[in-house]
Design a protein around this nucleic acid. Structure first.
Length: 496
RNA sequence: GGUCGGUUGGCCGAGAGGCUAGGCAGAGCUCUGCAAAAGCUCGUACGGCGGUUCGAAUCCGCCAUCGACCUCCA
């Protein structure tokens, strides 16, 4: 039996996965900032860790999956001065900050549902943990690695390193080089060193989102909430921390420093980072005009898209590349994914109607099927290798199709192998890759009855060799986006 | 400038010192009133130059090239 290995970005190697307190596993993923729509790259990360969550559960672990909602406190330097994003956006749209938060949180959850993400077991918000953030800030001051300055509190990176710690362990940076490379930004004069980062930020009177603290009225710094919430729900040391590669520095680096500074030891055993998403070879960004929202893929309403693509096609496209690889989305890639997914779903349908009828077990073929089933676990155990799993599923689909073509009889493998094929294919395709059959989901009874009738009428016409009528039905339906499929065992239809 | 990753067949994308990845496209075939759909079969690639080795796409070095991060960002 293989065992799960995870590529740990902290140690830069693949390591066997040993939970701290089996069978429990703590998994933390940096969630979205709900001041605007989640974008697709963000979605890729969440889908990647949905896969991780699903697979850990499949392996029998009792997983607490925490994914936060950042609804306060992030700073932006766009205008040359520190401002609260939530507040900026609120002014633009003339809404209350919490209205913005609510709107985009709901939108985020819609996207999660459509892409078939399992909800995390806890989804804490930053604004719901202000007290804890103040407490951790105080703890860091007490421990001598943070200082108050003009109503704000900063993490003292040099003092932290002087205690034998290493700010830069995760991202491979060196603080002297960082200090040398920093450009001047407003508010730097409050800091002892340019690399010090805010734990608590003083709020000017016009800030709408602010809370009282021992240092005056203000709001928490960018990195603090994740340290606080992961510690609160997963403990001072937990198994897996996940996020996008671009969060490695400074966000995750700061998180480590905060946790070590407050608790005295490293918080996370395995760090996992997803790679970036591009569109037509370019980073997806608003400024380049190639940013497409997740929902726009579903509706097809975007100039760069030729048509609508289902959420499952997009999810499948993601599953065809490893989470740690860059992924370039193209129209061709979307089309390919659509077809590949359909093939896998068709095989799942065929699998349902196969009948077991072992006339003579062919040991060689029996082994072939068993090996394919075993391969599913082996490849997933290898750092969640979804693309390879997809390849194995395709090979299984071919075997299923061969049975389907031979009178739907499974006649050369043992009953137990047949059962294994059945459970394995379904488990990995639906439960682990998290794909579902959208065609089936979209079906409704009334339409099915109508189609049954139409197909029957067409059959009569065909039996009478009334080709004009039969072709008219086929062509008219085609124009209505319904494809008639004449098979060996009768006619079926497909929407789309 | 610093840190870290890529460069695989027509396209996408895994793998990794010798053993078929897989998908899409393409070709052939089966089915079929025609077509479509569906299915089966086939294809032998690893940026360049050196080196290590019995053997390298896989390891080492150099070069070229693309990109990410270093500032909010998944």
């Amino acid at each position: 039996m293989s065992e799960l290995h995870i590529y740990n970005t902290l140690t830069r190697q693949k390591e066997p996965f040993k939970p701290i307190h089996p069978p429990f596993v703590g998994l933390y993923c940096c969630g979205p900032t709900v001041y605007s729509d989640v974008h697709l790259g963000n979605t890729r990360t969440f889908i990647s860790f949905d896969l991780v969550y699903r697979y850990l559960k499949f392996l029998g672990y009792n997983v607490r999956y925490v994914r936060n909602i950042t609804d306060a406190g992030h700073l932006t330097n766009d205008a040359g001065e520190g401002k609260n994003r939530m507040e900026d956006q609120a002014k633009l749209e003339k809404l209350e900050p919490m209205e913005i938060v609510q709107k985009y949180t709901v939108g985020f959850h819609d996207v999660c549902r459509i892409f078939n993400l399992l909800p995390p077991t806890i989804e804490p918000t930053a604004t719901g943990h202000i007290v804890e953030q103040i407490e951790m800030t105080q703890q860091l001051i007490d421990n001598g690695v943070a200082y108050e300055s003009n109503g704000s509190v900063y993490f003292d990176v040099k003092a932290y390193n002087a205690k034998g710690n290493n700010y830069g362990v995760l991202s491979g940076r060196n603080i002297d080089e960082l200090i040398a490379g920093y450009r001047d930004l407003d508010g730097q004069d409050e800091k002892r060193n340019s690399i010090d980062f805010a734990l608590w930020k003083k709020a000017s009177p016009e800030h709408i989102m602010q809370w009282n603290s021992p240092w005056g009225s203000g709001f928490p710094g960018w990195h603090l909430e994740c340290s606080v919430m992961s510690t609160k729900y997963l403990g001072k040391q937990f198994d897996i921390h996940a996020g996008g590669m671009d969060l490695k520095f400074p966000h995750h680096e700061c998180e480590i420093a905060q946790n070590v500074g407050a608790c005295g030891h490293a918080p996370v055993r395995y760090w996992m980072h997803t790679n970036m998403l591009n569109f037509n070879g370019q980073k997806m960004s608003k400024s380049l005009g190639n940013s497409i929202l997740p929902m726009q893929f579903i509706t097809g309403e975007h100039p760069l898209l030729d048509k609508a693509y289902s959420a499952m096609s997009v999810r499948f496209l993601f599953m065809q590349s490893h989470y740690s690889s860059e992924l370039d989305i193209t129209i061709k890639g979307l089309q390919d994914a659509e077809k590949g997914l359909k093939k896998l779903m068709n095989a799942a349908k065929f699998l349902k109607v196969l009948q077991f009828d072992a006339v003579a077990v062919d040991d060689k073929h029996d082994k072939l099927i068993r090996d394919l089933c075993d391969e599913c676990k082996i490849v997933m155990d290898d750092d969640f290798n979804a693309p390879k799993l997809v390849a194995v599923l395709h090979e299984m689909a071919t075997q299923i199709n061969i049975y389907n073509n031979s009178n739907k009889k499974v006649n050369n493998i043992s009953q137990s192998t047949y059962d294994l094929l059945h459970t394995t294919y379904v488990a990995y395709l639906f439960d682990i890759l998290g794909l579902n059959d959208e065609e089936q989901m979209g079906s409704n009874e009334a339409l099915e009855k109508v189609m049954e009738l139409i197909i029957d009428i067409r059959k009569q016409a065909r039996d009478n060799k009334d080709w004009p009528t039969s072709d008219k039905i086929r062509d008219t339906l085609k124009a209505a986006n319904i494809t008639i499929k004449d098979g060996k065992d009768g006619t079926t239809y497909e929407i789309g």
